[in-house]
Structures are given as structure tokens and as C-alpha cells.
Design a binder for these strands. Structure first.
Lengths: 187, 187
DNA sequence: TTCACTATTTAACATATGTAAAAAATTACC
DNA sequence: GGTAATTTTTTACATATGTTAAATAGTGAA
């Protein structure tokens, strides 16, 4: 997936504006297990997944809880850093070797103030992330873990294969034992 | 709270740009119990609460579940309508007589394409809503209902007074009986 | 104040989920 | 291919929360 495609998928940009952003991008790769973003740290870059799969997790009383998975095309961001220049909640761990497009937040913010198209691209970007987050929240509040597990199986069957069950269980908000029971019933 | 104050709190605007937005705003009032936004409907306006308190809820198997409360200064929006021009999840019910600033979504979108300051205002607006939504999601995933109830008591003591307990229980994701038990333990 | 209505709490019981630990299955490596 | 290491499932038990229903408290109207 090229950076141009990813940018256009968020909000179509004129060639000139698009190149202003694309020029800022650096391609970077890291091995499985690498921690790309760190909790309680102000991050200065955002990333777009070119290849691979990652998880966001936070520590709660010593055991970590996964609250997001990211794959090809997804943005990997500490929203608190990006939006408020504050420390974020999440560690981002690479579940496979990954390649990212890296973008310095400050570079992007400069463009927001200079180019109205890029400002609107940034608006659409935030709006789309907002919708995704709202959907996660509503699904979590309204649907039981088993249904959300079925959704995951349906929408991201590869993810369920590629990711250890314990991470998926904590993502669903149940224990691994409970998820195992659920899976047994589905058989 | 004036509309100018609310706009500036989201992202400070130059007087000229601010007036472009302020001119679009219409003040509207409705009685307690009125349904301001309807689920499964594409909404064409967004609202900012000048006075009063509202709740967002969705129907689940016949009983409604509250997932958001809005008060003075808060935006009342069907995000799905605003961002994607699609039907939203939520009914918005007025828990008291309320006054809103109303803004047509299409009017605002026109300005996004014409004025870079307003485009950046729209970006900041989405970004801030995104942070709020993310915080709600993380709090819901990481903290037990009782702690979230304590937070609510601390951050919005008036809300706990003004809103029936059943709504608060469903907002917390527990039954009213369970919330009552929790409250009994706090005494 | 009294009555009617609504909201909240309490009680009794059923059930689902968590915890801890062991068993089984799967994967990785020599 | 065999052994160790890891992951997943199963078991047994404890506990918290849901359900239903009844009791109590609170509120507003006449």
C-alpha cells in the first residue's frame, strides 16, 4: 500500500497538497516484539501501517490489557500526543515484523495552518477515527463479548489466527478461560 | 454561555471567521422529554447546549441504554450524520427544558472549504471529541463500574442529582439493582 | 396533609464469569 | 522425530452480578 493511496483513502487530496505530505514521510521497519509507542510518553511521530500487525495495550495492576489491533492501512497514533501534546495511555507492540510510514506530528501541524486542503484532510482524518472509536465504544457497551468475538471472527478472521488468544480475550474484556468456554460452545 | 465563548473554547477563531459561524446559529428551546435527535435518521443539524441536560440512548432488545450525558457547552450530535451523512444510533432526550444553539451541518461544511481557520476549527472540534470518546472507551474497558460511578460523583455531582438512577446505571453498564448495592456500600 | 405515582432499595435466588491449577494440545527447536 | 516450551482448554470452586419481586422512600398534585 503506497502512502499516496493511504492518504487519499482518508480524504482525496490534490496532487500538489498530497506531495507536500508525502515528502514528509519516512519508511521505517522494526522486528516482532518491538515497542513502537510507549505509554506515559509524549510521542512526536505518527505511523501508518504499510505491512504487519500491532496491538495497543495499557498496564492495569501489573497485567496488560489490549484495547486495539492495527493492520495494513491503519494509523498508529498516541491520540493524546497528537491532539493534546500530552502523555498517552498506550504501548504499541509489534505482533509481527512491520513496516510503517512515519510522519512527524509537528511537520503535519505546520501544513494544517498553510494549506486548507490539508487542514480538511486532517479534519476528515480525526472525524473518521472518531467514528471508529465511537463504534468500538457502542459495540462494547451494547453487545456481549461473545457477539463481539463473532464479529471479530467475521471481519478479521486473519487477526484471530495471527494473534494469541489471551490478547483477544483482554480486548473483548473477558478472561482467556471465559473466551475458551465461549469457543467450546461455538463448536 | 454565548456561542462565541463555546466556539473559542474549541479552537480560538479570528473575529471575522467566528462571525461567519456565529451568523449561521439559531437559538432553539424545547421542553423536558422532547426527543431532539432520532435514531436511524440522518440528522441535518448539530446543537450546542446553552442550558439544560440531555441523554443519548439506544434501544437494545426493547429497553433503552444510555451511553452519554450532555450539559451546558457540550455538542449534541449524531456523529454518523455529521461525519458520514449516515443514520445515527442515538435518540437524544431532554432530561430538562433546554436551550440550544443550532447549526446546519451543510452550512458548516461550506465554510470548511472556504476558510482555513474554520477548517482547522472543525479539525480541532473532531480531535477533541475523539479524545473524549477514547477516554470514555478506555475508562469503560479498564475501570470497574463502581470506580466510574465514583468518577461521575466527583466530576459531575450535579448530574447524579439531576438524572434518574436507572439512566446512570445503564450508562455505567450495570443494572439499577447493582448500582443500588454499590451505593449502599459507599454509605 | 393525604393520596397516588415514581424512584430507589432490599431480599432471595439463579447464573455467568472470575480465579487458580491441572490437563491437553499445539508449536518450536535441536 | 522427540523433547521442551508455549498456548489453549478444562475443571472445581468462589463470588459478583443479574433477575424478579416486594418493601421502602420520595415527589408532586389535589
Amino acid at each position: 500500500m503506497t502512502i499516496e493511496t493511504i492518504l487519499d483513502n482518508i480524504y482525496p487530496l490534490l496532487e500538489e497538497s498530497k506531495q507536500l505530505v508525502a515528502r514528509l514521510v519516512k519508511e521505517v521497519s522494526f522486528p516482532k516484539g518491538y515497542i513502537l509507542l510507549k505509554a506515559n510518553k509524549i510521542e512526536t511521530s505518527i505511523y501508518l501501517v504499510k505491512k504487519g500487525i500491532v496491538r495497543a495495550y495499557s498496564d492495569l495492576d501489573g497485567n496488560d490489557i489490549t484495547f486495539w489491533f492495527g493492520q495494513e492501512g491503519d494509523p498508529v497514533i498516541s491520540m493524546k500526543s497528537y491532539v493534546s501534546n500530552q502523555k498517552g495511555y498506550e504501548d504499541i507492540e509489534l505482533l509481527e515484523a512491520c513496516t510503517f510510514y512515519e510522519l512527524k506530528i509537528s511537520d503535519l501541524q505546520d501544513l494544517f495552518l498553510k494549506d486548507i486542503h490539508i487542514a480538511n484532510w486532517g479534519r476528515r482524518f480525526a472525524e473518521k477515527e472518531l467514528i471508529k472509536t465511537e463504534e468500538r465504544l457502542i459495540s462494547r457497551q451494547f453487545r456481549p463479548a461473545i457477539d463481539r468475538y463473532k464479529d471479530l471472527l467475521k471481519d478479521h478472521p486473519d487477526l484471530v489466527q495471527r494473534v494469541p488468544l489471551g490478547y483477544i480475550a483482554s480486548y473483548l474484556g473477558i478472561t482467556q478461560v471465559s473466551l475458551s468456554r465461549v469457543r467450546a460452545e461455538l463448536r
